[in-house]
Amino acid sequence: MSAIGKVSGSGASRPAIIINEQDRHFAAEVERLSGANLSWCYQCRTCANGCPFVRAMDYPPNSVIRLIQLGLRQRALECHTIWICVACHTCSSQCPMVIDIAAIMDALRRLALEEGAMIAEANILDFHREVLHSIKNYGRAHKLGIMLRYKARVRQWFADLDVGLRMLAKRKLDLKASRVNALSEITRLFIPHWKRK
């Protein structure tokens, strides 16, 4: 259930926050997972002003912090911002309270995946999964394999074809993957501990 309702009345309807649908434990949970103290944030918006990606985000970083403080769990876990953030740390380097904002995004992504929340940027998640698939199989990232599997997954074979061909022509995409010898050490890291032999 969304915690955002509409205020009815005259004029345009405004979103309202329904107090009894707030998740009171959400902020504590994010603080525990991220190690960041959310009460340090005084909404100065330095993070939003410095973020190179803020135009592609639905909520600027400071608003994501506010969503967590207000206990708006679904809004926070289903927003685009947590997937658009590339952890460049421009925000935390500029934050006057040195809040680790990228760690907060990490915590939200983890909760979103654990709870099966709607993923706002499915393509970005698909890309990350393909990178991890490559690391699991070779111990290293094999770019050509990652891009081919990613294209198959999102069914966009012709998007970016020119860039891919130019990279191939410049021998930037190796056909054969470079691998780790002790591959069992790597694959074991991907198996939950109770399954390991």
Binding site: I84, V86, N123, M147
Partner: peptide, 9 residues
């Protein structure tokens, strides 16, 4: 732009 170059050119 980091990895967004692949998924959100």
């Amino acid at each position: 732009g980091s990895f967004l170059s692949a998924a959100r050119a």
